[in-house]
Write a protein that binds this DNA or RNA. Structure first.
Length: 591
RNA sequence: GCCCUCGUAGCUCAGUGGAUAGAGCGACCGCCUCCUAAGCGGUAGGUCACAGGUUCGAUUCCCGUCGAGGGCGCCA
C-alpha cells in the first residue's frame, strides 16, 4: 500500500551499484527532489560521489548505473544529465498513489509509523516567572514550544510538556511585597511605592482582593514598616538612576521584604501564596485559551522542600567540584568549558537560582527521559555551559539535553518601539495581542520566523493587514475544499476507492508531489526543532492548491474525472488540517 | 574587551555541498455570466556583505575584514 519513492529509488540504485562496483559500499544514497521540474521528479548525485574513489568520469559511472538499474513499474525513465546526475521520472501512478495513502491514514498521515518503543521526550517551555501577565515574548516561546512538542509527537516520540514554575526566590518576594504595599495604601498607610517593585495594575487588583477577603488583617503602620528599612534614593522622574542608586534601590526593596516577613510572620505566606496562585492561574488560563497545554507544572519550591537542591550541591561537593571563597560555595564550571566559576550558595546561606536549576535538571534525568529539550529565551545563552557542566560533573548524560533558544520579540506600534519592561508594567500582554490579532494569526505569525532569529512584531501591521496574513491564505484553501464538498453532496469515504488515473495535468501531479513531501517535511522539522518549516510548507501547499483550483474545475460532468479530483481535493484538505493542527491553528470549514 | 547570532530581490524573510538561488509584501499588466477574487496568471527586481581557503563543485563548510543586533551579576 504505502510507497516511498526515495527508498524505492535508492534500493534500485543500490542494486545497480552492486553490479557496477561490487566492492563499493555507500552508506547513504542521496535521493533529492530537483528544483527544476525538467530535471525529473527525483535525482541522485551517486555517480558524482563515487567519481573520486572509482577514479572515473562521473558521467560514465552514471551511464553504467542506469544501464544496470533493475526494472520497476514505478519508474518511467532514468537518465543521465548534467555533470553526472541521474534523473528519475516516476510513472503517473507512482505520483498519484499518495492521495490514497493520505485518505487511508487521515489524521495519522505524516506521523511516523511506530517502530518499537517510542522515545520519551520532555519539552520544557515558557516557564515564565509567575509575577505578572504573560507578554508577547512568552507568546513566542509558547507557540514555538507547543508546536515543537506536537511535531515531536508526529515524529514518533512520547512527549511530555512541562512548565517550570519559579515559585521560590526573590522575584516572588518582590511581587508579594508589591501587593502588600498596595494593600497598605488602600488602608491609608502610605509607604512610597518603590520604582523597582511591580508596577502593573494587576498588583493593585490583588491588593483589593485581599482587602475584600480579609479586611485589615495584614495592616501595619507605615512607620513600623519603614523603621528598619534602608532609605531609598531620591526619586527620579525619568527613572535614570546611576549604579550606586540602583544598588540602594535594591537594598531598600530587600529591606521592605524583610519588614514584611518580620511584621506579618506566618501571614506573609498568605500574601505570597495569594499572589503566586493568582498569577499562575492567570498564566495557565491565558495559555489554555491560546491552545497551549502542559502535562506538568513543576514547582521550583518543591526542589527545596524535598531537599533536592541541597542534595545536588552536596553531590557536586562529594565529587570535588565545589570550593569555598568569600564565604560562598562555587561550582568549578571552568573545568567543563564555562568561562568562569559560578556561585551555587551565597555567603548568606541562600542557594542561587543556578543551584535549583542543577537539581531540576538532575530530576529530569531521574524521571527517565531519553531526551530533554529546554526552550529558553535567547538571553540565557550564556547559561548553557554551566548547566551542561553541572550535569557532566554529576555524571549525567549531558548529550540527552538539548537547549533551544528563542530570540526576543520586539514589539512595534507603527515605527515606534514599545518598551517591554516587566517591572515597569509597561508591556503589551499576550492576552492583548490575542484579542487584537486573534489566536490563529498569532500562532501562525510567530511561526513565520525561525525561532533563533529576532522577530519584529508590528502590532499595527498585524492588525491592519490581518486579512493578508498567510494564515488566512492557508485556511482559505481548507475552506474551499469544504465548500466544494458541500456542493457535491456525496460520500467522502467513497473517495478512498477512486480511480486516480484521470489525475494527469501538470498542476495535479505537482500537487500530489507536494502532498508526498509532507512526511519528510515533518521529519526534518522535528529533527531540527524547527516548526516554522511546517508553516512554510503549508503556504506552498496552499499555493499549489489555489493554482490548481483556479485552473481546473473539480465538479465536472465526467464522473471518473470528478471522483479523482475530489479525492485529490480531500487529500489536500487533510494535509492542511494535519499541518495546522501541529501549529495549533484552526482549520475552518468557512471563512 | 569576551561570547553568540545575523548580513540573500525595494521591504520582511526562507533555503541548500550540486544543475538556471526562492516565497510573501510592495510596483506594473491582466483574469469573476463558471465549485468562495481572503483567489489566480504574467512582468520587473540579485556580485547570496567583502576577500581568501577546503572541494570535481561553495550562497552553504573553514579563516579573516567590514557592518547590524544581542548576551556577559553572590539577579531570576
Amino acid at each position: 500500500m504505502s510507497f516511498d519513492p526515495k527508498s524505492h529509488l535508492s534500493e534500485l540504485l543500490r542494486a545497480a551499484l552492486a553490479s557496477v562496483a561490487p566492492a563499493q559500499t555507500v552508506a547513504d544514497i542521496v535521493i533529492e527532489r530537483p528544483r527544476d521540474p525538467s530535471h525529473g521528479d527525483f535525482a541522485s548525485n551517486l555517480a558524482l560521489q563515487l567519481a573520486r574513489e572509482l577514479k572515473a568520469n562521473p558521467r560514465q559511472i552514471a551511464e553504467r548505473l542506469v544501464r544496470e538499474l533493475p526494472g520497476s513499474g514505478w519508474v518511467d525513465k532514468a537518465e543521465v544529465a548534467g555533470a553526472g546526475f541521474i534523473n528519475f521520472r516516476l510513472a503517473a501512478a507512482a505520483k498519484t498513489q499518495v492521495v490514497k495513502e493520505v485518505l487511508a491514514r487521515g489524521p495519522d498521515y505524516g506521523k511516523r509509523a511506530p517502530a518499537g518503543k517510542r522515545p520519551k521526550v520532555q519539552v520544557e517551555f515558557v516557564s515564565a516567572n509567575p509575577t505578572g501577565p504573560l507578554h508577547v515574548g512568552h507568546g513566542r516561546g509558547a507557540a514555538y514550544g507547543a508546536s515543537l512538542a506536537c511535531l515531536l509527537t508526529y515524529a514518533g516520540n512520547d512527549v511530555t510538556r512541562e512548565f517550570y514554575v519559579n515559585d521560590a526566590g526573590r522575584q516572588m518576594d518582590i511581587l508579594a511585597v508589591s501587593t502588600w504595599l498596595r494593600y497598605l495604601d488602600l488602608h491609608g498607610e502610605k509607604v512610597p511605592f518603590p520604582p523597582n517593585a511591580y508596577q502593573g495594575a494587576y498588583v493593585g487588583e490583588m491588593a483589593e482582593q485581599i482587602r475584600g477577603a480579609h479586611g485589615e488583617r495584614y495592616v501595619h503602620p507605615a512607620a513600623a514598616v519603614l523603621a528598619c528599612v534602608p532609605p531609598a534614593p531620591l526619586r527620579r522622574a525619568d527613572g535614570d538612576y546611576d549604579k550606586a542608586e540602583k544598588a540602594q534601590l535594591e537594598a531598600h526593596l530587600d529591606g521592605l521584604i524583610a519588614a514584611g516577613k518580620d511584621l506579618l510572620g506566618e501571614e506573609w505566606h498568605y500574601v505570597h501564596q495569594h499572589a503566586l496562585s493568582e498569577q499562575l492561574a492567570d498564566s495557565r488560563e491565558d495559555l489554555e485559551e491560546y491552545g497551549v497545554h502542559f502535562d506538568c507544572w513543576f514547582s521550583e519550591r518543591s526542589l527545596f522542600d524535598t531537599g533536592m537542591v541541597g542534595k545536588a550541591v552536596a553531590e557536586l561537593e562529594k565529587r570535588g567540584h565545589i570550593y569555598v571563597q568569600d564565604g560562598a560555595k562555587w561550582f568549578r564550571s571552568t573545568d567543563f568549558g564555562d568561562e568562569k566559576d559560578r556561585v551555587v550558595q551565597r555567603d548568606n546561606g541562600l542557594y542561587t537560582y543556578f543551584a535549583s536549576d542543577i537539581a531540576y535538571h538532575a530530576n529530569k534525568f531521574e524521571r527517565g527521559f531519553d531526551k530533554v529539550v529546554d526552550v529558553w529565551g535567547a538571553d540565557h545563552h550564556g547559561y548553557i555551559p554551566r548547566v551542561k557542566g553541572a550535569l557532566a560533573a554529576l555524571g549525567l548524560p549531558v548529550e540527552r539535553l538539548d537547549v533551544t533558544l528563542v530570540q526576543f520579540v520586539s514589539l512595534f506600534r507603527g515605527t515606534e518601539r514599545v518598551s517591554m519592561s516587566t517591572r515597569a508594567g509597561s508591556y503589551v500582554t499576550l492576552r492583548e495581542l490575542r484579542d487584537e490579532v486573534g489566536n490563529d494569526a498569532c500562532r501562525f505569525f510567530y511561526m513565520l520566523r525561525k525561532q533563533d532569529q529576532a522577530l519584529d512584531f508590528d502590532l499595527d501591521l498585524a492588525k491592519s493587514q490581518s486579512n493578508d496574513n498567510p494564515v488566512y491564505y492557508v485556511q482559505y484553501a481548507h475552506a474551499r475544499v469544504c465548500s466544494v464538498l458541500q456542493q457535491w453532496d456525496g460520500e467522502v469515504k467513497s473517495l478512498g476507492d477512486a480511480d486516480l488515473a484521470p489525475l494527469a495535468s501538470e498542476r495535479e501531479l505537482a500537487l500530489c508531489a507536494r502532498l508526498a513531501e509532507f512526511p519528510e517535511t515533518i521529519e526534518a522539522a522535528a529533527r531540527d526543532y524547527a516548526p516554522h518549516a511546517v508553516a512554510f510548507y503549508l503556504r506552498e501547499l496552499a499555493a499549489d492548491f489555489h493554482a490548481w483550483y483556479n485552473a481546473e474545475r473539480v465538479l465536472v460532468d465526467d464522473a471518473a474525472q470528478k471522483q479523482a479530483r475530489l479525492a485529490l481535493a480531500v487529500a489536500v484538505r487533510r494535509v492542511i488540517a494535519n499541518g495546522l493542527h501541529i501549529l495549533g491553528v484552526a482549520a475552518p470549514e468557512h471563512m
